[in-house]
Amino acid sequence: MATFDTSDCYVVEGKLALPYTYFAGRVGSTFITTLRDQRKIMGVKCNACGKVFVPPRQTCERCMEDIRNNWVALSDTGEVVNFTVVRYDDKHLPRKAPFVLAMIKLDGADTPMAHIVEGIDPENMTEGLKVKAVFADQTTNTILDIDHFEPVK
């Protein structure tokens, strides 16, 4: 703790506000526009290691192979491989707490992707749950063009 005279110390309120733009690139744009327009989830396959990545990427980071053109259509169903329950509210979060954020491995993919799971009480969530994508009515040109996943009935 400070042992000096703190009578002159005070706190000034500040703010940092900056605009920015994110360019998704060709691979990222193809992924989102296909999702949005055809309601189809696409991955890319590395021919060297055989892995199917979703979300897609231009390069397999392990093999350093260019995989940008190796598109494969994936199922809109998959399995929860891990999850967490978000129990606090903040403006950057996509839902009001509590809600479930899960890592979902789509059928046909080798990598899981993060998304929201609804239609199940957070307290009943389990790994291994089979889920299915529910597409959004309104596009945001982001991964939230899948509105959420819900348990396969």
């Binding site: 994110y22 360019f23 998704a24 690139g25 060709r26 691979v27 990222g28 990427r57 231009q58 390069t59 350093m64």
Partner: peptide
Amino acid sequence: HREDVNQPEMIHEAVRQALDDAGLTM
């Protein structure tokens, strides 16, 4: 402007070129 690539994709172009220039792999 590089709307056609995202950040890692743009970087990769230079990474690939440098590896090729040196005759190395990662």
